[in-house]
Amino acid sequence: MENSNVFTLAGVSYVIQNTPILTGITLDIRSGEHWALMGPSGAGKSTLLRLFNSLISPTSGAIRFHGQPLESTDVGRLRKRVGMLFQEAVLVNGSVRDNLTLPRQWVRPVPEYAEEQLTEALERVGLTPGHLTTQARSLSGGEKQRVALARVLLNEPEVLLLDEPTASLDPPLARKILRLIADLQRELNLTVIRVSHHPDLVRSFAGQVLFLDKGRIVEQGPIVLLDQPRTQDFSRFLREAQA
């Protein structure tokens, strides 16, 4: 499956209440790639991300997942294979263990996670087994994101969608979490699609970049585009983001 297309988008548009949010998106995402979606606020980055795990469906155009039309895949299974982290980590009331074992409640027969799986998931994201009994609400912002990441990883995804999960964290902590994600990507051969505003963070971790403006792709390609933007819009965006 190396270098095969995980996602293929052909002429994808998304309109809500007569307002176009995305227009004519055509894009190939290959296995193991790390994409950074960039663009000003309201460019449609989060909307594009939500299309990948079918939290929304395109108004027109086609999305294929491993060559299969997205609408013909089992949505529950798709969402497990395409995990997502949001800007704010939403944890349910209860302990870290309750949060990690949450997804198994929806599967019949109920799978039993071995204790080692839970502790391994926590250690993978830089937490300790002692955190299992900690109440979720008493965790810091960074710890919450780590628990949310561990929870997604327990689903054994092949794609990770990141909707600025480090936006509310201070820069050193954000960098730490992104480093962790980059390590996990290599270790688990994950495909990562991530919304980001910071060129520095994109340069450090991503391999491909896509610049959206007003719902349209302005530029897409390898990370060197950050140093050699082809359009004025992207160039201006990068200047402003770095300022």
Binding site: N53, L55, G76, R77, R79, K80, G83, M84, F86, E88, V90, V92, L102, P103, Q105, W106, A148, R151, V152, N155
Partner: peptide, 20 residues
């Protein structure tokens, strides 16, 4: 809304996502 989206994104069926 954010919680429901999170639960759906983890593979929860709608009934589980809106149970609370």
């Amino acid at each position: 809304e954010a919680e429901i989206d999170m639960l759906l994104s983890l593979g929860a069926p709608p009934r589980a996502a809106i149970h609370d």
